[in-house]
Design a protein around this nucleic acid. Structure first.
Length: 418
RNA sequence: GUGAGCGUAGCUCAGCUGGUUAGAGCACCAGGUUGUGGCCCUGGGGGUCGUGGGUUCAAAUCCCAUCGCUCACCCCA
């Protein structure tokens, strides 16, 4: 049997209502904040991600779905959206038509990792990017939108973490300080952390090794070494978040894995989804546009994982997606009437009623069971003596009431009761 | 890339100190009312016990390999 490729999943009809509800919520909240949707291709030239996300990151280093196509182009299925959005922004000179662009997206993403709870090889993210302003209020707006969407979906067990990475200059100066602090302790660190020492020294703060933790307790903190501008904007972020009524905690160890972040970074964690618990993450990236050879353009954004959110909703039992039902099920008492039933069905379908009927030549009883299963509001019985006089029984499935109606007057009867 | 656990019906699982035709619940189909659902009752269909090999008189059950899934590490949504 051919099965879906490892790490990919079918979304079956039963699960669609939950997805639709999430998608509707996303669209509503982004509209409230006046963000416009953007759609970009699922694949891009590999170099876009290599340069945009950073050669040293795990995403680029070992997780990309890359291949060469028949014309020898290096292609990669998008592992995240920010680089693509910024590429489109530059390519179409969106910044020249409008000084601030507030964009959002919902799209599948691809990363070749070992699947586990809350991690797939094809997964879905939604997110937003605001390009063209350094205003910290946009930083806060990202958190507000993400938080609002999660709250609307009924999630409660949430933890908002924020941090500031400062400007690249202050961060590099700080990294140097940290390197000096660690250099003589390096051989006492765990193997993983020793690797991080060269690759991404800030990541050593994430180590779960007890001894590493002990060493890092006395390490200098990035937050204490911010440039004055980053420090000030971080203060405003915190104050504004407070005013927004969004509970948060400052996590000086929150280091996002993508190279392009500057200043504000944040993450929203769920306590209900296992070990891949980041529902959403984001931050400011003021230098990305020029990295990609565009006009220098400040930006902020975030991305959230739909599968993880759905997992959290399931575990918190927070999602009440509406029941699916149909307006009318038409049964047939005599087999010869199939065509008539089909004709009546089309008539109502054209009038925007949701209508179904039997296609399996089943007994009336079976048809009724089907109607019940589909939660039909009404059942129409076509056939018998009453049909000969142009009549049919119409049954209200909830009350059980049934009345004889004239078939050619069904329109007004049904449409008025809808 | 590393580690652990698990693969029996469409789904959830029982059976596993090896021993007659492999079970249950749910779902599905039919009947109980030859023109009427939800509850109930009766019956039915559906399984190479993931795959391959080995041990044995005998394997779903023990051993090995392989594939797949799951969870965790790394990292991230």
């Amino acid at each position: 049997m051919i099965k879906a490729v490892t790490g990919t999943k079918d979304i079956l009809p039963d699960e669609i209502p939950a997805w639709k509800l999430v998608e509707k919520t996303i669209e509503r909240i982004f509209h409230n904040f006046n963000y416009k949707e953007i759609r970009t291709p699922v694949f891009e030239e590999t170099s876009l991600f290599a340069r945009g996300i950073g050669e040293e990151t795990d995403i680029v280093g070992k997780e990309m779905y890359s291949f060469t196509d028949r014309s020898e182009n290096n292609i990669t299925l998008k592992p995240e959206m920010t680089a693509s959005v910024v590429r489109a922004f530059i390519e179409h000179s969106l910044g020249k038509q409008q000084s601030l662009n507030k964009l959002y997206y919902v799209s599948p993403m691809f990363r070749q990792e070992r699947p586990q709870a809350g991690r797939l090889r094809q997964f879905h993210q939604f997110g937003a990017e605001a390009l063209g302003s350094t205003s910290v209020y946009l930083d806060v707006e990202m958190i507000q939108m993400a938080f609002e969407i999660l709250k609307e979906l009924g999630l409660k067990d949430l933890n908002v973490k924020i941090n500031s990475l400062g400007t690249p200059e202050s961060r590099n100066a700080y990294k140097e300080k940290l390197r000096k602090f660690l250099i003589d302790k390096k051989n006492k660190l765990s193997e993983d952390s020793r690797k991080r020492f060269d690759k991404n020294i800030l990541r050593i703060f994430d180590s779960k090794d007890e001894n590493d933790k002990k060493i890092m307790k006395d390490a200098p903190l990035l937050l204490d070494h911010l440039d004055s501008e980053s420090k000030e904007s971080f203060e405003i972020v915190k104050e504004t978040l407070k005013l927004s009524g969004i509970p948060f905690e400052v996590d000086p160890y929150l280091v996002r894995g993508l190279d392009y972040y500057t200043k504000t970074t944040f993450e929203i964690i769920s306590g209900k989804v296992g070990s891949q618990n980041a529902l959403c993450g984001g931050g400011r990236y003021d230098l990305l546009a020029e990295h990609l050879e565009g006009e220098p353009t400040p930006g902020v954004g975030f991305a959230a994982g739909i599968e993880r959110i759905l997992l959290a909703c399931e575990n918190e039992k927070s999602l009440k997606s509406p029941e699916e039902n149909i307006d009318l099920f038409i049964t047939r008492l005599d087999d010869e009437l199939s065509q008539k039933v089909f004709e009546i069905a089309l008539n109502f379908r054209r009038k925007n009623l949701s209508v179904d009927c039997d296609y399996l030549d089943r007994s009336l009883k079976a048809q009724m069971r089907e109607a019940n299963k589909l939660k039909a509001k009404y059942v129409l019985f076509i056939g018998g003596d009453e049909y000969k006089s142009g009549m049919a029984n119409l049954k209200n499935m909830e009350s059980g009431e049934q009345k004889l109606v004239q078939i050619d007057k069904l329109d007004e009867v049904l449409l008025s009761q809808k």
